[in-house]
Amino acid sequence: MSATTMTNWQLIKNGIFAENTIFKLAISLCPSIAVTSGLKNGVLMGVAVLFVQTMVNITIALMRNVINSKIRIPVFMLVISGWVSVADMGMAAYARDVYRSMGLYIQLIVAFASILARAELFASKNKVTPSMFDGIGMGLGFLVALTIISFFRELIGKGSLWGVSLTGGVKPLLIMIMPTGGFFAVGILMAFFNWMEQRGGKAPAHH
């Protein structure tokens, strides 16, 4: 991918719809199953990734002319782990209860394919502004995906939303908050969005 020709707004839409990390590119699927058993966890994970993705894209775009291409991957990794540490410590300081339940997964953002991929494919070849919007778009896409997945999993699997119980005595579908249910949810939602797109429905097609 050479320098992008998309406008900032197109970059954001691209990240949310056409190149949605989970539903379209099908990368970084591990957190989409591991932390989405509750809406709260899913949303906060999405916010953390949005932050890291945007900051990494900005930093890489700023440094793109001084990075020796032979060692670019280690440099990317250093930048990513730096911003992940910021997110990790920030969450540890300001959102302790959530952090306790998903601390490891915040640190694992370092290994997300989506973040390294955008650094390599986009930020290292584009100026700061488009890189920032690309990061926001990709991060928002991830946030939206995790929100949808965790919404359905918590609602069906626990009968609650954001920890508030909604069931009137109906026994929820326990399997949906187990890892198995995560695969079910991701697969069915992915199929649903592809189907909507094929029908020319609401999900806007790219190109």
């Binding site: 026994k171 929820p172 579908l173 326990l174 399997i175 949906m176 187990m178 198995t180």
Partner: peptide, 10 residues
């Protein structure tokens, strides 16, 4: 299998 895991007691 799905309902067994979801509603083990019933």
């Amino acid at each position: 299998a799905f309902v067994l895991i979801s509603w083990p007691k019933a």
